[in-house]
Amino acid sequence: MAEAHPIVMVVDDDDSFRRSLARLLLSHGLEAWLFESAEALAGCGVFPEYGCMVLDVRMPGLDGLALQEKLGRGGFNLPIIFLTGHGDIPMSVRAMKHGASDFLTKPVDEAVLMGAIHKALADQSHAGGIRARVKSLTHREHEVMCHVIAGELNKQIAARLDITEKTVKVHRARAMEKMGVGSLAELVRACAVAGVDPAGKP
């Protein structure tokens, strides 16, 4: 399950603000990794397993939104909280569409920021738990689950995978059990959180 020690990655081009945020996080018992630009972050290489990112939108060089998209393509799955001096609606829509956890404006109130960080960390630990469950599925179970959440009937799945309908039912029940869900609706939601691609390959 989730590690006990979450890391908050802060990417902001303003030295003083970066330092102040690190102190605030420290006072809340959170460790911060500081980066002055998207390029500096790219040079880091290793990302924490458990944590989140506080990202400035407007930075010289690669800006926050572009960095988010680039990280997304690279399979980065930590939640991202945007923090910007002046955000507009197109900017926030673009960020949220690409899965941002929150979009806040500077100066930000402590309670709001910490609320967003804690929610992101909770989401991440929840998602991390579900991802661990997904990993425990066999190849076949995962395959069947993907077809199930894509809305296919057992009969269709059997035909597609060239197995009997009975076997599909067994895999499906196993998958439901391992994922710890009692209904199809819960399974779909859990898969969404863990980022399982419906009808995709495991």
Binding site: D14, S16, S20, L24, L26, S27, P107
Partner: peptide, 17 residues
């Protein structure tokens, strides 16, 4: 906005510390 944001965050962190 940059210095104002830093001042606010610093003040809040300082209070907690």
């Amino acid at each position: 906005n940059q210095p104002l944001a830093a001042i606010l965050t610093n003040a809040q962190a300082g209070r907690r510390l």
